[in-house]
Design a binder for these strands. Structure first.
Length: 280
DNA sequence: CGGCAAACCTGCGAGC
DNA sequence: TGCTCGCAGGTTTGCC
């Protein structure tokens, strides 16, 4: 489900409620998601205070008072929701349930189980296998036209696939890559190595813009994404190309009956939505 | 090494 | 109504 804006939205919602509180009870309902849960997770979490909640790429980071970080990835279908009424019945696919010292309950639910939970020492986070190869944060200072062009240099893969590569830039997924490419007027079929100079700079600005707007909208709620507080994001109403096959391209003045509007193609096994007239 | 398809798993909507 | 098929926001593996 979630790309960077959705994970950022969840992190902010959790921070507002859970930061500063002690985890008093942990209920783990299965042994693994994509990978096994950390051994002795219950023992390692109970009694710990959550001192900070942040995000790196698409990973939620819950910093604990013992120097460890609880790392959570939501995969395609994961969510973390706050359950203020602990008497509510558990839902299918509730895999991990944390109770805080104020009685508030936090539930990790993930039907497809593509997500993961890991425990990492804070001072070793960057060298951990999940984080060691990650590219720069797209909203950070290290990400700019020059650095992106450098990461693209010599790549023969389509720019769409290159932007989905978390080693190039960390946090983009299928939706926001499609949207950013549309904003920059770059065809998803163009080879990454040909995107440089002013084009690379424009692409960087397009990525930043679409992520900023999506975060301000609380992310995108397609099927099942909800904020930690249960609210829906609404950026899906602002999609220009994603999931809009056959619809008019905003800014295209040509006749949609003749052009067919937004097109859907498959690249590396995943849907790409774009306008072949505006994106070159 | 680079690039792509397939695999992991469940749910849902479309179409017959 | 009920079935089958295809597709879904991610990442890793293994093959060419």
């Amino acid at each position: 489900m979630p790309e960077l804006p959705e994970v950022e939205t969840v992190a902010r919602g959790l921070a507002a409620s859970l930061e500063g509180h002690v985890i008093v009870k942990v209920q783990q309902n299965r042994a693994d998601l994509r990978i096994p849960f950390p051994p002795n997770l219950k023992t390692r979490l109970e009694g710990r205070r959550v001192i900070h909640i942040g995000r790196r790429a698409k990973y939620l980071l819950l910093s604990l008072d013992d120097g460890q970080i609880l790392v959570v990835h939501l995969g395609m279908s994961g969510s973390v929701v706050i359950r203020h009424d602990p008497s509510l019945p558990p839902q299918p696919h509730d895999h991990l349930v944390l109770t805080a010292d104020d009685g508030v309950v936090y539930v990790l639910n993930d039907p497809r189980r593509f997500g993961l939970v890991e425990m990492v020492a804070a001072d070793r986070l960057d060298e951990h296998r999940l984080f060691a190869g990650l590219g720069p944060e797209p909203l950070g200072n290290a990400f700019n036209g020059k650095s992106l062009a450098k990461a693209f240099a010599g790549k023969k893969t389509p720019v769409k696939a290159a932007l989905l590569d978390q080693r190039v830039v960390a946090g983009l997924g299928n939706i926001y890559v499609c949207e950013a490419l549309f904003r920059s007027g770059i065809s998803p079929l163009r080879l990454a190595g040909t995107v440089k100079g002013a084009k690379a700079e424009l692409l960087v600005q397009s990525i930043r813009q679409v992520l900023d707007l999506a975060i301000a909208a609380g992310g995108s709620s397609l099927k099942d994404f909800v904020h930690a507080d249960g609210e829906l994001g609404y950026f899906q109403h602002s999609f220009t190309v994603y999931d809009r096959e056959g619809r008019a391209c905003p800014g295209c003045t040509c006749d949609i009956a003749q052009t067919g509007g937004i097109e859907r193609i498959v690249q590396s096994g995943r849907s790409t939505f774009y306008c072949p007239r505006k994106q070159r």
